[in-house]
């Protein structure tokens, strides 16, 4: 999955010279492969230091651990590539989890409960998009505000308590498996493929990169920037709510405390995967790699019995080293 760069120039909307775009493309590729190499190093390190790391069972464990944040990060990729970002996911994940369990416990059909939970999330995303585009408030402030509202709603709906699923069949995404692989892992792979395809091979994908590359030029080129931006935020929040559905399926319960670190971890994963915070650069492959790097490090350190305090420190240091390593390779490759 090659990473993509905002090709605004190609649509006469980017206003960038082709050399600059080519340079950034190469830089992104270098970052992607740099992180890839780093990931291989991480895997080798933990395989050598922990007896329990290099096994099918633990690989599956890592995949199941990263699924929730992976789904959030897919939406975050869209937001970041388009030049924004979405902090509200930390509120939408618990909102999705709680609403899904409430709908499920009301004996609604599971697909309908999932759909409604996702629509609740998407509604928050539409609000984000409207606030950013129509009111003109910076995404940082806008999504910070809706984070608080969505998280507060999750607490209000659940009355601050953990709501167990009355019928565990509602947690079908976790309860059913292909072999030993839970449905939700397969869902992550499916969603990743769909979004990768959309970003890489469709007009809407190119427009997202164009808007992230140069918002004003895209508008002048006739793109419906506001509508696309609203759609992006709606998709991002809808995916976050779906991540809430997944986490409540894993836990067989809905809680307003889940997903608290979803915003920071998803943004870190997207950036680690080679996206630029100012937009126009990034992609699904890099994001998934970023998610895997963070998830694998967390898993490896847990297996090595590293205390939680030091895990936090180590994760931060490794994150900086990984990004630095990628940037260094990018500079070296010209």
């Amino acid at each position: 999955m090659n990473e993509h760069v905002g090709m605004g120039g190609g649509m006469s909307a980017g206003g960038r010279d082709p050399e600059s775009v080519k340079s950034r493309w190469q830089s992104t590729q270098a970052q992607f492969f740099g992180i890839g190499a780093f990931y291989v190093a991480v895997v080798i390190f933990f395989a050598l230091t922990s007896d329990y790391f290099f096994s099918y069972s633990n690989a599956l464990n890592i995949l199941t651990n990263v699924t929730v944040i992976g789904i959030v990060a897919l939406g975050q990729t869209l937001a970041i590539v388009s030049g924004g970002f979405d902090l509200s996911v930390s509120g939408v994940v618990p909102l999705g989890a709680v609403t899904f369990v409430i709908f499920g416990n009301a004996e609604m059909a599971t697909p309908a409960a999932m759909l409604l939970a996702v629509l609740v999330g998407a509604a928050v995303g539409v609000c984000n998009g409207l606030i950013v585009t129509k009111v003109g408030i910076n995404p940082l402030i806008a999504t910070l505000g809706t984070l608080s509202i969505a998280a507060g709603l999750a607490y209000a709906l659940s009355n601050g308590v953990t709501i167990p699923m009355k019928n565990i069949e509602v947690g079908v995404l976790a309860e059913r498996t292909y072999g030993r692989v839970p449905y939700y892992v397969v869902t992550l792979i499916g969603l990743s493929l769909v979004i990768w395809f959309a970003m890489r091979f469709t007009v809407i994908g190119r427009r997202i990169y164009a808007i992230g590359g140069n918002r004003e030029a895209s508008r002048l080129a006739g793109l419906r920037v506001d509508e696309i931006t609203i759609a992006i935020y709606a998709t991002c929040a809808g995916l976050a709510a779906f991540a809430g559905v997944v986490v409540s399926s894993q836990l067989l319960a809905g809680s307003a405390t889940v997903g608290a670190d979803a915003a920071l971890t998803s943004i870190a994963s997207v950036i680690l995967g080679g996206a630029a915070l100012f937009g126009g650069v990034g992609g699904v492959g890099g994001t998934l790699l970023g998610v895997l790097v963070l998830g694998t490090i967390a898993n490896g350190m847990a297996l090595l019995m590293v205390p939680a305090f030091y895990q936090q420190i180590a994760t931060g240091v490794i994150l900086l080293l990984a990004v630095g390593f990628g940037r260094f390779r990018a500079v070296m490759s010209g």
Binding site: S55, N65, V258, N299, A302, L303
Partner: peptide
């Protein structure tokens, strides 16, 4: 393990420990 007193974190921490 450190579950931070929360459902999701405890689930993940115990999952890793079981390995």
């Amino acid at each position: 393990v450190d579950g931070a007193g929360a459902l999701e974190e405890s689930y993940t921490a115990v999952k890793n420990a079981l390995q």
